[in-house]
Write a protein that binds this DNA or RNA. Structure first.
Lengths: 212, 212
DNA sequence: GATAGTGGATAGCTGTGCTCTCCATAAGCG
DNA sequence: CGCTTATGGAGAGCACAGCTATCCACTATC
């Protein structure tokens, strides 16, 4: 197929596809002439993945490129991708007092140790969690109880996530599932959380069931 | 205090504070002269909230303004804010086939009905969840099992969240806790999820415990 | 042979979140 | 008092991200 068909199947405008090709988000098609290339279903799938990571995952182009490079590695290392290649939707931007981040970081380190989580000491998620924790404190919220409860919940989620990864076929499939499940999983969980929050709030505040 | 002190206490540059004032993210200080105003601790707190919602919650300025307006309403309605005013970090951008979103929407509606969730039929989180679900399918992932598992987990989380809200004092405090807990909670959960994913992955793939 | 489409490159556009500049005025200090 | 610095307010400008538009020589298709 040529670029117009690729565009038709995915709904992505042709100039945007060309942009993604330039940015290395999409491998070049097989050249049949100096200015003719053939694309196939893998391009369709890759393009859809890019759009989903952009629109739902809200990852920047540069991050998506890195992720895709990890996906294309010859020897897939699911563990490394889960632990270090995946962004955690938090990039602090130093808006929070560095000292309280450091304190929060120690608290996270303690948490992982107490719970026996096998997590690399330099895992970026440690810092991400610390920044969020510090942010809670920055706005005057007492996050102590919540942190332990969320840690419990996170343990359950991760079991489900790894089962999801395990359901995929082959090493590349599992890697793909790890990426998709991690990035989209965040959004799915957030949306479901909104639904259940409204439910609990309706129960607690006794609001008329199904209006608004 | 004047603007320089406000800047010093929060680390936000003076021109940025002026910008937030113009954008209505920060209420004007009390004018003592045509070009002198006094700010107080509420400004400090509000400013910190804005930065945290920006940097951690990654909400756009316009959304933050709407949230703050809801926070400043005279008659705080925690339930309405939880159900409708809070963005769910998903804004589809129509990158996904509308038909599969519609199908996913029906599935979400069925899920809420089966579980007896008291959620308004027009709650935006329904659409958000549907978009993520459609995104999973768009990239060829079978999300069936995961959805039910996540729904279980979300029920637990929401109980914790409402307890967190209930721990705050006064109606405004609870509203504030609902906003902070919802937005920052997403990020905290995501970060903890990364940690536990790495842990489960280390267990599953038998990786050397604490390296990388 | 006419028309539309192609790969590739370069320049331009749009929206967001600041940042800079300017101004008349006020505060702080000797 | 006079001098320096800071202030509130407003508009223009800037940087980055993610496209979008234009152009070109060339190719496919009718």
């Amino acid at each position: 197929m040529r670029i117009a068909e690729l565009s038709r199947q995915t709904g992505v405008p042709v100039p945007t596809i060309k942009y993604y090709l330039r940015e290395g988000l999409l491998p070049a098609g097989e050249l049949t002439s100096p200015n003719q290339a053939r694309y196939d279903d893998r391009h369709v799938q890759r393009l859809r993945l890019v759009r989903v990571l952009l629109d739902i995952g809200r990852l920047p182009i540069a991050t998506i490129r890195q992720l895709l490079e990890a996906l294309d590695e010859p020897d897939p290392d699911v563990h490394h991708v889960l632990g270090h290649a995946l962004p955690s939707s938090v990039n602090g931007k130093e808006s929070i007092d560095p000292e309280s981040v450091a304190a929060a970081r120690r608290r996270i380190d303690r948490l992982t140790e107490e719970r026996g989580w096998l997590v690399g000491p330099r895992a970026p998620a440690r810092q991400a969690a610390a920044e969020v924790l510090a942010a809670f404190e920055q706005v005057g919220a007492d996050v102590g109880v919540l942190l332990e409860q969320y840690a419990d919940v996170a343990e359950t989620i991760a079991v489900h996530d790894l089962a999801f990864v395990g359901r995929a076929t082959g090493p590349e499939g599992m890697l793909y599932a790890a990426v998709v499940g991690s990035i989209l999983g965040d959004s799915l969980l957030a949306a479901l959380r909104r639904l259940t929050q409204e439910h609990e709030s309706a129960k607690k505040f006794g609001i008329r069931g199904d209006d608004c």
